[in-house]
Design a protein around this nucleic acid. Structure first.
Lengths: 68, 68
DNA sequence: ACACCATGTTAGATATACATAACAGGTGCG
DNA sequence: CGCACCTGTTATGTATATCTAACATGGTGT
């Protein structure tokens, strides 16, 4: 699972720590999300997308394997 | 978190068990999702939405409390 | 060189999504 | 009635998302 978190974060000039704070998680969680190491909960994905001024399906990029 | 799983399932005439089979989870998991007892993983939400011919943000209905 | 800031990584603890199995109630149909 | 089908529930186990704390690194500015 790839994401555009880093890209959107850069666009709004917000840091990992600030995003984490606004979303209500730890900074490490944001790091793992950006690197695609987590399959986040739906609510967390929603909060991240909204905080970045976007939608879930725009922030998180699904691949074919995610359907199997 | 509310969902329109049951509604969309009825529209396509598919059973909980069949949805579970196509999505690749147990039927009980679908029951819990329909009742809003689970905060599913993003991938699972994606698979459910796609199997129902819809999108995540159409199937799962977020509330204000989901942002806090 | 030193200090500061953003990012990355690692290890252990906790919460919870999801699996598994088993059982129960309702509905329709022979 | 009896039977198959769909749905709901409960209990226990496992996997993993997330927390917490600590340390490492590269860049930038002074």
């Amino acid at each position: 699972m790839k994401t555009r978190i880093r890209e959107l974060r850069a666009k709004t000039g917000i840091t990992q720590e600030e995003l984490a704070r606004q979303v209500g998680v730890r900074r490490e969680t944001i790091v793992f999300l950006e690197k695609g190491k987590y399959n986040p909960s739906l609510k967390l994905a929603y909060r991240v997308a909204r905080t970045l001024g976007s939608t879930i399906e725009e922030v998180f990029i699904f691949e074919e394997e995610d359907l199997a």
